[in-house]
Amino acid sequence: MSPRRRPARRPGARLRRAVLNALGLGVFVVAVFPVCWMVSTAFKPNDEIFATTPHPLPAHPTLRHFDTVLTGKVAGVPFWHYFANSAIVATATVAVSGLLALLAATAVARFRFRFRTGFLVMLLVVQMVPAEALVIPLFTDLARLDLLNDLAGLIAVYVAFALPFGVWMLRGFVAAVPRELEEAAALDGAGPLRTFFRVVLPLVAPGLIATSIFSFITAWNEFLFAFTFLKDQDKATLPIMLQFFFGRSGNDWGPIMAASTLFTVPVIGFFLLVHRRLAGPGLTAGAVRA
Results as ranks from 00 to 15, higher is better:
T228K: 13
A258W: 00
P192I: 08
S249L: 15
A152L: 09
F229T: 04
F245K: 13
F173H: 05
L142A: 08
V177Y: 12
F214Q: 05
L181R: 15
E182H: 11
L187W: 12
G166I: 00
F223K: 15
Y158E: 01
E222H: 08
T195E: 13
V174Q: 07
R144A: 14
L154F: 06
I240Y: 03
G166D: 00
G207A: 07
S215R: 00
K231E: 14
A160E: 00
P164A: 11
I209T: 08
A162N: 00
G247F: 12
V199K: 02
I217Y: 02
Q233L: 08
M257L: 15
L238G: 01
K235D: 03
A175L: 15
F173Y: 11
F245C: 11
M257N: 14
D252I: 05
I240G: 00
D150N: 05
D252E: 11
D141M: 11
V177K: 07
A185G: 05
A219D: 03
T211S: 14
L224D: 08
L208Y: 02
W168M: 13
A236K: 10
T218E: 06
A186R: 04
L203A: 05
A162S: 06
E183S: 06
W253V: 06
R198F: 14
D141T: 15
F223C: 11
A176K: 06
P164C: 10
S215N: 04
F139C: 03
D234M: 14
M241C: 09
K235L: 14
F245M: 09
S212N: 03
E180I: 13
R194S: 07
S215D: 01
V204Q: 01
L193F: 03
R171I: 09
K235A: 02
F165K: 01
F246T: 13
L203K: 01
G153A: 08
L142I: 09
R179H: 07
F161Y: 00
K231G: 15
G254D: 07
I240M: 11
A176C: 10
G207T: 05
D141L: 14
W253I: 09
V157H: 02
N251V: 12
R144I: 15
L193Y: 13
W220F: 06
F229H: 08
D234C: 10
V157D: 01
A205H: 12
V200W: 00
D234Q: 15
G191I: 14
L147V: 09
L142M: 11
L151Y: 14
L163V: 00
P206M: 06
W253Y: 10
D150R: 11
V167F: 05
T140W: 11
L181S: 14
L238R: 09
L145D: 13
F229C: 02
V200M: 05
F165L: 12
A176I: 07
F197Y: 04
V204C: 02
T211K: 01
Q233P: 05
L262K: 03
P206A: 14
L151V: 03
P192G: 12
T237I: 14
E180P: 03
G189C: 03
A186D: 04
R179A: 15
L151I: 03
K235C: 08
R248W: 03
G254S: 04
P202E: 07
L262H: 04
N251Y: 04
V177S: 02
G153N: 05
G247Y: 11
A210W: 15
K235M: 13
T195G: 12
G189T: 08
A186P: 06
N251W: 13
L224S: 07
L242Q: 13
T218R: 03
